[in-house]
Nucleic acid binder design. Structure first.
Lengths: 170, 170
DNA sequence: CATGACTTGACACGACTTGTATCAAACCTT
DNA sequence: AAGGTTTGATACAAGTCGTGTCAAGTCATG
């Protein structure tokens, strides 16, 4: 009843747009995806002027500066998340990080768990593991119990995610 | 692979057994349970000399000092948890907190989530809600799909809790 | 080859969280 | 009435976490 929210809403924009060396624009080439593709797509999703959550999903990979812009997160934060094992972006031949759209989606969930729900990184790790395990559990149950029971399980899981404020699209 | 553990193991015994006023022994009477019952039972589960997790479950209620001794947690910590809505102990007529064995069990889970797994309190709240919702989901599915499918669900949930390191006995 | 732009890892700082210590006041039992 | 305990409030120390900064390395371009 009392149950205060304890949402801190730290992070996010205490810093003016100072041109510090860590929020650049044009990425180095990738040597994996067709040369320059990441750069192009990143530019495309930035140009329309919409700023945050509702960026249209696009296929492709992004180097860290572009991924950071898309997510509105600090590049150092993304690096730290990788060090802690929360995400695992690919690498170019030159060892540059490459964030896939799947990584971006995962990072959005991480951002929600951290900012909106106030979890620390251990909690984020736990929640991600829980989501992952629940989804595979759903698969197994559907395989074992047949399609209609599987559908019931899917519905229940949907309700669960909803009541836990987990933005999982299944 | 790299994936370091990030277990901090803070709390727990940086303080010598100084006789500060907040770790007493004999509780005040309760006026709800038969007079002195809490005290007796607390004494019983302490006397055998075993110290921590494997205390045999007993029915009864405990005032905060006894509960704190049983759990090896600081009374102030228990009060703070109540303020945050994590536990909701009963009260005597004189407003003393009364912790049931169910509360004790819940507090053990909280302690595990916090100490062993490193979750902050927001994460603990999330995990507790997840556990609760999963258990009621299990009930609903068993009711809808019948006993054998219900048993399958129960098994899957057991595996889930296990792989998430959640000490839930179901 | 030289230059510029960018990323990399490492370190440090400030804000916040959290368990614990401390205090005066109120309560209960002897 | 006296002693012991709980209560709520406040304060402090240690840890967490996002972010700023730096030198060194990599890559494309002129």
């Amino acid at each position: 009843m009392t149950q205060q929210r304890r949402v801190q809403a730290r992070r996010r924009a205490p810093s003016p747009p100072l041109p510090g060396q860590d929020a650049p624009y044009r990425p180095a080439d990738t040597s994996i995806s067709p040369s320059g593709a990441a750069q192009q797509e990143a530019g495309a999703s930035e140009a329309p002027g919409r700023e945050d959550d509702t960026v249209v999903a696009m296929e492709g990979v992004y180097i860290i500066s572009v991924a950071a812009r898309i997510l509105d997160m600090h590049p150092q934060t993304l690096r730290k998340y990788e060090r802690l094992g929360l995400v695992r972006p690919g690498r170019t031949l030159g060892m540059l990080r490459l964030y896939s759209t799947e990584d971006i989606r995962k990072l959005r969930i991480i951002r929600h768990l951290s900012d909106e729900m106030g979890l620390n990184l251990a909690g984020v790790e736990f929640a991600l593991a829980a989501i992952q395990n629940l989804l595979t559990m759903q698969q197994r149950l559907a395989a074992k119990l047949g399609p209609e029971a599987g559908e019931q399980v899917r519905e229940e899981l949907h309700l669960l995610f909803e009541s836990l404020n987990l933005p999982v699209d299944q």
